[in-house]
Simulated assay, not measured.
Amino acid sequence: MSLAPILLFTYNRPEHTQAVLDSLSKNKEAIDSVLYIFCDGLKENSSEENKSKNKLVQQIISSENRFKEVKITIQTKNKGLARSIIDGLNTVFLEHEKLIVLEDDLILSPFFLAYMNDSLNRYKDFKNVGEIGSCNFFACGKEFPTYFFTNMPDTWGWGTWKDRWNKFNEDAVFLYKELEKNNKMHAFNTYGAYDMEGMLKDQIFGKVDSWAIRWQAVMVLNNWLCLYPNPSYSNHIESINATHAKINMVPPLQNNEPTFETIEIKELKNVTEAMQLGYSGKGDYFGKLSKKYLKKKTKKILKSVLLFPLPYGIVAFFKKNKPKK
């Protein structure tokens, strides 16, 4: 099986960089894999602390030797995450037909590379598959299949092919208009569960700089689906220093020897419902109402009861439903 090159994007989190490299190296395919590491440059007027952390990250990646080959790019200026990822993929795709993408805030299963490489080879000729994802955070557990497809792309350990990435479009205005013209905004919004449209508008007006929201629009416009595993082959390192990820999802991780299979490329109702529940903020990793949401809902009900005591409620009920003469 041909192994896809791995891209790792780093900046100023030495502990996280070391953690993702350590977990990646525990995959048996690591020793035969080419690893590209991109370290972003410092922002203007960076603090001494940031300078020190960035320098330490450079030292960590420069000493990495657990892979077939390690190719390092250290930027002289700060590009930001979106520009770094877009440029990095464009560069590596000049020489390769498929790749795996990682950021420095992930922990990986020892079977991550086996899953990613098998799936990239298995589905390369299925043109309705746009991406292979590894972090399943809303449809884990026995109620869901071992593998499934959704229209929501994954950004926490993922892979794709050159011909799919060639359709990536940076123009958020164009993407927005195309979503509206093709009546795909509802699907883009996780079928109404999350305001992805608002995020795309923020991209248009410069309030955010996200490659992911634009990639998601491209996925939806092309009717592509993303493969997910159950359970995850990657999860997110909880970090108060995370620049973009504020939720800190840590789903169950796959630690048993997996088996792989080709499945029908279609969306499943129970998976879609679990994704809707999760993106709406009401669901947990297992497609059920989360304890946090239930606690909030119960608190709201109790507050309502306290504001309108039971006897008053009973009187109001009978007044409202008094039989007509």
Results as ranks from 00 to 15, higher is better:
S2G: 11
A4P: 08
I6S: 04
L7V: 08
T10L: 13
Y11K: 15
H16K: 05
H16M: 01
A19E: 15
A19R: 09
V20A: 02
D22L: 10
D22S: 01
N27S: 00
K28A: 05
I31R: 13
V34P: 09
L35S: 06
Y36V: 07
D40V: 06
L42Q: 11
K43T: 12
N45Q: 14
N45D: 15
N50P: 09
K51C: 04
N54W: 13
K55D: 02
V57W: 07
Q59E: 15
Q59D: 15
I61A: 04
R66D: 03
L81N: 13
I86C: 04
I86A: 00
D87N: 15
L89E: 12
T91I: 14
L102V: 05
L108S: 03
S109M: 03
P110L: 00
F111N: 01
F111D: 01
R122F: 03
R122H: 05
R122W: 04
K127I: 02
N128L: 09
I132S: 02
S134K: 02
S134D: 06
N136H: 12
C140L: 09
P145M: 11
Y147G: 07
F149N: 01
D154F: 05
D154C: 13
T160L: 01
W165N: 04
N166F: 08
K167A: 05
N169Y: 07
E170C: 00
E170V: 02
Y176E: 05
Y176F: 15
K177A: 07
K177I: 09
L179F: 08
K181Y: 05
N182D: 02
H186K: 13
H186F: 12
H186V: 10
T190W: 07
Y194P: 05
Y194I: 00
D195F: 11
D209T: 09
R214T: 08
Q216M: 14
A217H: 05
M219S: 00
Y228L: 11
P229H: 01
P229R: 05
P231V: 09
S232M: 03
S234Q: 04
H236T: 09
S239P: 02
I240V: 13
A242P: 01
A242N: 05
A245N: 15
N248E: 07
P251T: 03
P252W: 01
N255P: 06
I265C: 06
N270M: 11
T272F: 03
A274N: 06
M275Q: 15
L277W: 06
Y279G: 08
Y279F: 15
G281D: 10
G281V: 02
G281Q: 03
G283L: 02
G283T: 03
G287D: 04
K288C: 03
Y293F: 00
L294N: 10
K297C: 02
K299Q: 11
K299S: 11
K299H: 12
V305G: 04
F308R: 14
P311R: 00
A316G: 07
F317K: 07
K319Q: 12
N321V: 12
